[in-house]
Design a protein around this nucleic acid. Sequence first.
DNA 1: GTTCGGTATCGAACGACGTTCGGTAATATA
DNA 2: TATATTACCGAACGTCGTTCGATACCGAAC
Lengths: 245, 245
Amino acid sequence: MADARTTPRGRPGEGRRTGGARAARGTRQRASHSLEAVVGEAVALLDEAGESALTFRALAARLGGGVGSIYWYVSSKDELLDLAGDHVIASVLAATEGRTGAEDPLDDVRATAVAFFDAVVVRPWLGARFLGNTEQQPNGMRLYERLGQQVMRLGMPPRQSFEAVSAVLGFVVGTAADLGRQSTAHGLDRDGDLARHVEQWRSLDEREFPFVHFVLGEFATHDDGEQFRAGLDLLLAGLRLQARG
Amino acid sequence: MADARTTPRGRPGEGRRTGGARAARGTRQRASHSLEAVVGEAVALLDEAGESALTFRALAARLGGGVGSIYWYVSSKDELLDLAGDHVIASVLAATEGRTGAEDPLDDVRATAVAFFDAVVVRPWLGARFLGNTEQQPNGMRLYERLGQQVMRLGMPPRQSFEAVSAVLGFVVGTAADLGRQSTAHGLDRDGDLARHVEQWRSLDEREFPFVHFVLGEFATHDDGEQFRAGLDLLLAGLRLQARG
DNA sequence: GTTCGGTATCGAACGACGTTCGGTAATATA
DNA sequence: TATATTACCGAACGTCGTTCGATACCGAAC
């Protein structure tokens, strides 16, 4: 019934200063923000302490202002998270710009996919949030388009091209979100966490779980990035096969 | 510092009745639950009205009891969601049991993957939650094992087998979570939502977004399930290639 | 039949959260 | 100087997950 995602009430003027020089005359001092400052601090808060740390009160304190002020730039927490996600994607996009143009289109696809994966895997909040939202945000669309342009070079019909890009993007986001949760979920005790996990696997009955024991050694020594790239290569190999056939 | 996921304080006796006959004598009536009832109603609540509808108060009302009682069976909302997820996976596992044994192992992998996808895509709450948690819950492990046993039949070394299963599971969960959000996010206006989405794509500049326009028609008429299966087939094709080489 | 300890339930209360709203200062416009 | 617009502020509201002491139920022990 009620429509989610209402439009914001207002937006700040464009020429606003970021917050440097402000004259405190006689009365209480006021902070001055900007949309970039709000989103930037939100991302910093998320990266430093995880999704649960992003609170309007905490963010306001960081900006040196009041809670209510944030609502002038953003209409809800949902929108703030969207903007934060889009902000990160924009930086990934900018960092990898102009690096396309290898003779093999799939090499370009791989490079973009890996860059995006690396950005998401260290940001659990991004992965969880971006599922299903990728194609609704401006920079998400740019990412989609960039992958698509490389796939177009394979010369497949629209349907197959569409499915290919969706598959790659789904795999990247999904796997990154998957692995991101495990690695940096609650702190930095990656090794201890993994060791405990391995122990749990080892304790499973070998007759009932033959496969788990078959790959136990690999699991204990695996690297998230390698695991991702191996899966991506499987997908790209299938894609190449289809492009030829 | 503080360890997440503490152990529950207590667990109910096994032989408890589900709640049928209870004699109200002179005083106020008391409800009697059971772990299965709690988890079952939680799943029902999630399926009917989405993740935001699962509230301890709403759940208590549904069970005809008080808020505090739920904590006798479950130590936190996080654990409740884990149990709910595991409960659904168990039913998928049961529904597809014994259907393995095709001559082609990859056909078995595909069948299991599709069944799991279908269960997740209609449950946005499951997809978002299961990222990174799949391998930490009993039935998640069973699912992992079942896929693994089929992959083992391909005769690849442990490392490749491990990577293959992780890739397939990552793709399934990721894509399902991805597509699940779009489809049933806020109601049943799937068509209207898609149409609005298509319009948004069409409004993008054709010179800047050639690929988007190239696949616009496919996007407008696409089916989530087909899209998933197409991507899965790409992945499995790559896997077959690797198994042979 | 009374006592007693484990089992199971209850709801008031707490603190944190997202969000709203009336108000106020600063700035631009006239 | 008067007025409108822009930007900001923080108390207050309602909801949420969670805690806690109180209370009932029950079979076993005495």
